[in-house]
Amino acid sequence: MDTYTEKIRSIAGSLLKEGKVDRVIGYKKGSIPMATNPFAARTVEQARELVFNSTCVMNLANYITDSSETIAVAAKGCDSRNIVTHIVENKIKRDQVYIIGVPCSGMVDKRRIIEEFGSDLTEFSENGDEISVKSLDKEEVLKKQDYLRDCCTTCIKPNPVVYDELAGELVPEPEVKNRFASVEKIEAMDPDEKYQYFTDLTADCIRCYACRNACPICYCPTCFVDESGPQWVGKGQNETDIQTFHFLRAFHCAGRCTDCGACEEACPMGIKVREFTKKLNKDTSELFGWDAGLDQTKRPPLDTYSPEDPDDFIK
């Protein structure tokens, strides 16, 4: 994916030079291996700092909301779907955003690499389908395919769904056998097992709200967990309050979540936050034939009122 870097730089450079956009949002190399940070280039010079590789996990759709500027953004499949959601939800206008589409072959699961190599990596590089990782005590060349983030293995749209220009050839649409296998596993449990599963899952939560902050669709000026009048949910480390936060956040994402994985990536405690949202993705997909971020003209199914609603749940 390194090849994209040059293309992104040249597109960004000419956009800024011609004054077509006020800034270009992309990634910049971080200070340690495997780190790439979101970066807004405002000048042609800064545009040369832009990079793109398999560690560009942050969802850039986060950085384009509530702005009056014209913004270009390097968007992977998931980012582009979130941009669509933003357009639908009035966070940005379509003509205000210039989308540099980046066909994506998946992002590397940094957490796993660190687990296997220790946190003091000295070098990380990639070459086509292979990644090479060096730490103080070992060095290995790995197949990238084996080290993808979980959400990338079930991704159905790695290509941008909307773009003004492409930074590379579209990648073939993957065949995902069953993107909801993890959900089905839980669905098969009995109620007590399920409850235990989620209790264990959220046990480590420290309520830092990193998942919420990393999520592009969590943009409310005041989140319900921060409100005090009315106080929807307790603010302490109470088990029920923690679960309430996770359940309600997931419900707010119903029909809007693109399964970009930003929440899980952000969690410092390694909680599989997507276990909540994934269920709702499955339900909206099955009940309404809906996957978030594919259509700029339609609102998510839970956002609309229609007299023709099937209402099957009402008895």
Partner: peptide, 28 residues
């Protein structure tokens, strides 16, 4: 102050009562 301009209210209302302010401090 709390409105995020997401437009759910506009889409969901059967009577078209909500709309977006077009000007002023709370435009949008």
């Amino acid at each position: 102050e709390k409105c995020s301009s997401c437009g759910v209210c506009v889409a969901i209302c059967p009577y078209s009562a909500p709309s977006f302010l077009e000007e002023g401090r709370y435009s949008g």
